[in-house]
Amino acid sequence: MTGYARARIRSLVIHAVLFAVLALWMIPQVYMLSIGLRAPAQAFDAALITWPVTFDNFITVIRDNPLARIFLNSMIVTVATVAIVVAASSLIAFACAVLRLKGSLVLYATLLTTLMVPLASLVLPLAILLKTFGWVNTYIGLILPYAALGVPFAMVVLKAFMEDSPAELFEAARVDGCNAWQIYWHVALPLVRPALVFVAIWQFIVTWNEFFLALIILTESEMKTLTIIPMQYSGLYMANPGALFAVLTLIALPLILLYVVVQRAFVRGLTAGAVKG
């Protein structure tokens, strides 16, 4: 009994500490929402939470700005990028892991290196390239560079998962007369599904939140994605932080909700790899 009581007290203490750390961690998000809910008179109060709250800011910014269009732009760019990254990276990962493409180590070093190159280095040549193709202010001009930047990480993850899959399955499929494409589609992809889900969710987060390339490539307001809006509005709503922070909340919210929905699958994809090991 005393052992049980001790364990119970320890559990309570640990929960209390975790909640305290979480409260600290949540300050910026709570602050963002709180300023968004303030009337102009209280907007500059130096307090985390003020009372009463008003939804006026949210109504104003939704009414005055083409947020739906901007949201749609982000959605189109993100979904297309995720689709291309998942397809291209799983194909090349299959070639490396199952078909044993030569030169994997050189490839790996190259990928690691390019993952480390600051985006700022690539932006000028990319901008020139996209201008040559006539892709400035187009969805495709953003989607393809995003996909190219996303493939290396996705490929490394998927390749590791495929290498861990039992090779007998691939060989059995081969003996049964499957061609490479059939093995990829019917054997490899189902085997690494948790990893595909993980890669897709991560790519969604990264692409939706990308800011810098979008800023450079999208100059027409019609085409802008969500992440370049805050900077633009911070000048517009200088005197009314409530409106600005309402916009920030509206931008942050979709991805927070999405993550809450998919978090189980995301964590499963991250942990699934070595369950067999």
């Binding site: 939706w208 939140n209 931008i251 991805l255």
Partner: peptide
């Protein structure tokens, strides 16, 4: 604890 990771840097910086 993971929510800051999914929040855009352009939002975080202004906050």
């Amino acid at each position: 604890f993971f929510l800051p990771v999914v929040t855009s840097v352009s939002v975080i910086s202004l906050v």
